[in-house]
Write a protein that binds this DNA or RNA. Structure first.
Length: 275
DNA sequence: AATAGGTACAACCGCATGTAG
DNA sequence: CCTACATGCGGTTGTACCTAT
């Protein structure tokens, strides 16, 4: 048995909101403030689910929301944050004043994904599509044994570049993960020069590079690197790429070991890595 | 002018998480 | 600690609008 529905779905209106309904929400909020959304439909005289009222307010009616086009700066930030933390839209939106997670998600899905693809960048991994394709082409030239190893390595890389760290679910600062080589990141110029702190993966190492924190537009100190570690290049040794594809268990163990090492070196990530 | 296809964005859904009692 | 409820979140769907044919 699942969770009971939050409201009587058969008797509530769905679909687009009318200006009259919006006015009722606005009137209610100005009189009673925000909160207790389950009571809002009854008190505001709306035939809507409370959850629907909350979403209408948070995604559209809030007075602090911007309704104009995304700027180039916002666009670049979204790309950087997405590269660092993936589709954590609410976290990304927190760093774009006046934008909601829904805004950011829609903008990504409708514009930015296509824009990156047009530039030859895989929007999932943020790596050049040509590089991904050449990796797979090379598989066909290898022996069976090598094929398996190469494929495993690609899967490993895919994991690392897609979510970078599964433990970053609470992270706020984007730790932009990039590759080292220029050709692999020919689109770097597209990104802001004044970018957030970055993590670089290099062979068996994680590197937290420069990214003078004071330059970063992101200011949530809770997850910030300790000054001594973030200001200069720091290296966290990792067994991540030591992964031998002998079994799923060893792969998982390697991931956990890697996170343990990061945890030891960067206590600030404790709750991020707590999964 | 009609309509098919594409796009952008608002809204919904279901699960996760937080919290008060 | 447990339960019930409110809220947050990310993925998905629905729909209005635009453009090409």
């Amino acid at each position: 048995m699942g969770r009971p529905p939050c409201c009587d779905k058969a008797n509530v209106k769905k679909g687009l909101w009318t200006p009259e309904e919006d006015a009722k929400i606005l009137a209610y909020v100005s009189n009673h403030g925000v909160g207790n959304w389950t009571q809002v439909p009854k008190k505001a005289g709306l035939n809507r689910c409370g959850k629907s009222c909350r979403l209408r307010w948070t995604n559209y009616l809030r007075p602090d929301l911007k309704h104009e086009e995304f700027t180039e700066q916002e666009e670049q930030l979204i790309i950087q944050y997405h590269a660092a933390i993936g589709s954590r839209w609410s976290l990304i939106a927190k760093h774009l004043p006046g934008r909601t997670d829904n805004d950011v998600k829609n903008y990504w899905n409708t514009k930015l994904k296509k824009k990156l693809a047009k530039m030859g960048i895989d929007p999932v991994t943020h790596k050049p599509i040509s590089k991904i394709l050449s990796d797979y082409e090379s598989i066909s030239c290898l022996s069976n044994n090598h094929q398996i190893r190469s494929l495993d390595q690609n899967i490993t890389n895919s994991f690392s570049s897609q979510s970078y760290s599964w433990g970053q679910k609470n992270s706020v600062d984007p730790l932009l993960v990039t590759d080292i080589t220029e050709e692999e990141h020919s689109y770097q110029g597209f990104l802001a020069a004044d970018s957030p702190p970055q993590i670089q993966e290099k062979s068996s190492q994680f590197q937290l590079i420069g990214a003078n924190h004071s330059n970063s537009k992101v200011t949530d100190d809770k997850f910030g690197m300790p000054e001594s570690k973030s200001a200069a290049k720091n290296t966290v040794t990792s067994s991540y790429y030591d992964y031998e594809p002998s079994s799923v268990n060893s792969f998982v163990k390697t991931l956990l070991d890697r996170d343990n090492e990061i945890q030891l070196d960067f206590p600030a990530f404790d709750d991020i890595l707590d999964y």
